[in-house]
Design a binder for these strands. Structure first.
Lengths: 154, 154
DNA sequence: CATGGGTTGTTCGAATTTGAATCACCCGCT
DNA sequence: AGCGGGTGATTCAAATTCGAACAACCCATG
């Protein structure tokens, strides 16, 4: 790999823009969530996924594949959230090894409390800043990026 | 903030695409850099910034503002990189408190060694996946996103 | 029904990150 | 010169992250 194709100016702008926005947006969301509801961004994502799941429960592995963190990272977060009463563990009847994370009523309430402020921040920092055309380009382009990485990485 | 404007489908696709791509791309880059050259992504960014700076040196604060991490996080990373011989600290003559991080020859060599593989990965996971139109939309849209967050956050 | 390969979730230690507190210092003002 | 507010960088403890190792288990195959 001696002399690769370096990035031209257009590519460079896109890349560094993506990198910077990625870091800044994540930082801002983390801060907003923590200030506003005492949740970390990973925890919020867990709540969202569980709330959307049938029966409001998901297997640990499914939750981890969702992304965010590694398996061990998920174990840690679920333990924290269990202490806080937001989720509950339930062992899977058909597979002794399996564990469901179940959203509690308190967890659901916490999510409903946190969601409006979160959405408002998402609009403020990203969605409302972009034109509809840019939104579509993001969805299409980054959607494909995500799809490819999911295919390989797992 | 009782009932905010929720995200419609277009907005939701863009947002979750951005979130997923952001996490997956970062994870992938971290892994590639670590496997390929033993650098973390934050460390690579520090090398890049220093290499591009006049005199190949920057004040700690400028480096931290670049983003990536907090001030204390930067102190930690620079200490690690100093142990590895990639950078050197130099105190600022005009301000006793000030500290410059200076890129060493070894650091420069390390960067040149790591860059081709890094660029190839950036192409593979992002740049070459997008159309030119999508690249422009990313650059324009996310550029503005970053600009706004820089304005506020500091 | 035994066996081996692949899963599932947790545990462990090491590395990294963060914010708050701290120390030393610069600068403008009186 | 003497103050006081603000800045630059580090230190510290606590929280979080990851990967590797682990233990327990499922299941298809012979």
């Amino acid at each position: 790999m001696a002399e690769p194709r370096w990035l031209d100016e257009r590519e460079m702008r896109a890349w560094s823009g993506f990198l910077a926005a990625s870091a800044l947006v994540n930082r801002r969301l983390d801060q907003q969530l923590k200030d506003d509801s005492g949740l970390s961004h990973p925890q919020y994502e867990i709540l969202v996924r569980l709330a959307a799941a049938p029966g409001r429960e998901l297997r640990m592995t499914e939750l981890a594949n969702g992304l965010i963190n590694s398996k061990s990272g998920l174990t840690y977060q679920v333990t924290q959230m269990e202490k806080a009463g937001l989720v509950r563990r339930r062992s899977c009847p058909s597979d002794v090894r399996g564990v469901f994370a179940v959203l509690t009523d308190a967890g659901r309430a916490k999510l409903e409390e946190a969601a409006p402020g979160h959405v408002a921040t998402v609009r403020e920092v990203l969605v409302d800043v972009l034109t509809p055309e840019q939104l579509d380009a993001l969805a299409d382009g980054l959607g494909e990026v995500g799809r490819r990485l999911r295919g390989q990485g797992d």
